[in-house]
């Protein structure tokens, strides 16, 4: 895990002493990372937005608990993933389906440059397929997969973010990938989406 950036630490110190502008800098720096995690976890833009706001508010209120030896990004992602896991568990308690379809255009806000209409359609379809696969997973498994693939975290980093052991993470990733691969085999439409994209990229 990389050394904490000195400017990030400076913002943290200032935010701890009540400087809201410094905290705003932290928000600007990590809003995309936190939002992407929340969106991938929850699969719904409005809820992801709310979860992102909540994660930053919690971070501000608990800024004194942040260990400056650790990466701030890992810490804020840890808060966000735990919050999303809680939300998903509550959602399950409310008997709501995790398979609810994504709102139209939900997968179109990509970080790449403006795509052509065809590319946009393919990206949107791929985005929907990815969300469907993720939604097959239990919240803990989903968080591990997201941190592995979207943040390129190692087993150790994922374990630190999710506050568990390296072996637990290996096991979660193992099972999650098995389940998603099975799901891909079962859904033939996935190939129609994946293959043209892989060939074209």
């Amino acid at each position: 895990m990389g050394e904490p950036d000195s400017i990030i630490l400076e913002w943290v110190h200032q935010a701890r002493s009540g400087n809201q502008d410094a905290f705003a800098e932290l928000v600007y720096s990590f809003q995309d990372a936190v939002y992407n995690l929340c969106y991938r976890m929850l699969g719904e833009r409005t809820e992801a937005e709310d979860a992102t706001q909540e994660a930053f508010l919690r971070a501000y209120l608990h800024l004194n608990r942040y260990d400056t030896e650790r990466s701030f990004k890992t810490w804020i992602l840890s808060i966000a993933s735990n919050h999303c896991i809680d939300r998903l568990r509550k959602r399950r308690v409310k008997w709501l389906s995790l398979d609810e379809p994504l709102p139209a255009g939900a997968a179109l806000a990509l970080s790449s440059d403006e795509p052509s209409p065809e590319e946009a359609t393919l990206f949107a379809e791929r985005g929907t397929q990815i969300q469907r696969l993720l939604h097959e997973l239990a919240p803990d498994y989903r968080a591990a997969v997201i941190l592995r693939y979207w943040y390129d975290y190692s087993y150790v980093e994922i374990a630190e973010t999710l506050e568990t052991t390296e072996s637990a993470i290996k096991s979660r990733l193992f099972r999650a990938r098995q389940m998603m691969a099975e799901k891909m085999r079962a859904g033939s439409s996935v190939d129609d989406v994946v293959n043209p994209l892989l060939q074209g990229s």
């Binding site: 995309d32 939002y35 833009r45 806000a109 970080s111 990206f123 791929r126 892989l198």
Partner: peptide, 11 residues
Amino acid sequence: LLSRAPHVRAP
């Protein structure tokens, strides 16, 4: 598929 998945930007 997962490795090429895009990041979604915050509003």
